[in-house]
Design a protein around this nucleic acid. Structure first.
Lengths: 148, 148
DNA sequence: TTAAGTGCAAAGAATTTGCAAGTTG
DNA sequence: CAACTTGCAAATTCTTTGCACTTAA
């Protein structure tokens, strides 16, 4: 955990960005909520505990910066809000998501299920794949049991 | 083409929605731009040729209705705008997209590449898959040649 | 006839921007 | 110090809503 913060700090410095308390607090919040898919507003409210003076605009600017540095991925599940999802340490690809249409829960899938599919895309469509977004919409285990 | 309009009309009627000239014009625009990924604003401008009095709000309402009827799918490629993509006739699943990060072009992939992946998700995660979204980000054939 | 649909303008929500003041390296 | 950052409020952008009027079935 400490290491990850250190790494991110180094990344900022290496691109001659400054490490402000606001940025540090934002990164901490993201690390502490690794499983969640927080909106900018969510992050804002959580960061306020650590840095009460922070403004929402700064949170937006920081999240944009972290997206650019590939520390987080910006995703959109179809409601009107962008969400920010921490990249796994050393993960080559963005992980996948299962969104339950009943309860709205979001589950992450770590393992790469797209290896073969990507090869097909690369060869058949001559498309040089850099990243992907895969989301399944359906009914989660919990809600399946509920509706029986 | 005629058939598809007829089909969509029937779908509207069967749910006791009315077939207004505005709705008909909107559907026509979508059919005429099947390969595109139009935003509500895009659709609005195009529909105005056929039905000049139409308001943007009506376009939004129509697109929402067509989404509900599964005539179109609402997608979001990460810019702040929702786009509307006509479902292929009889397609069981939503098709996939290749988004070029250089030129912004969007290519559609018809064939279902996710059959096996979906089985894994269903069995391993006990998730009842209803639909999916798969988008690859990368460099299209065209842009690969350009940068050489 | 009448429930459903429309256009317009106003309201809302999410995000971005301008700028003076404050900080980091 | 100088360039980068911040907070605030105002501005934008996309989308939704209220309401009086119109229209398809």
């Amino acid at each position: 955990m400490e290491d990850r913060i250190e790494n991110i700090k180094k990344q900022l410095h290496s691109q001659s960005y400054k490490l402000t308390p606001q940025r540090e607090a934002t990164v901490q919040v993201l690390l502490e909520h690794e499983q969640d898919h927080l909106s900018a507003e969510d992050v804002y409210l959580l960061v306020k505990d650590k840095a009460p003076e922070i403004g929402l605009a700064t949170v937006y600017r920081t999240l944009e910066l972290l997206t650019e540095l590939k520390v987080v991925d910006k995703i959109n599940f179809g409601d009107g809000v962008s969400r920010y999802d921490l990249r796994k340490e050393g993960a080559e690809h963005f992980h996948h998501h299962l969104v339950c249409v009943e309860c709205g829960s979001v589950t992450e899938i770590e393992e790469d299920l797209l290896g073969d599919v990507e090869k097909v895309v690369e060869s058949r469509f001559e498309f040089d794949v850099k990243d992907h977004r895969l989301t399944f919409h359906g009914i989660c285990k919990n809600c399946q049991n509920k509706s029986e």
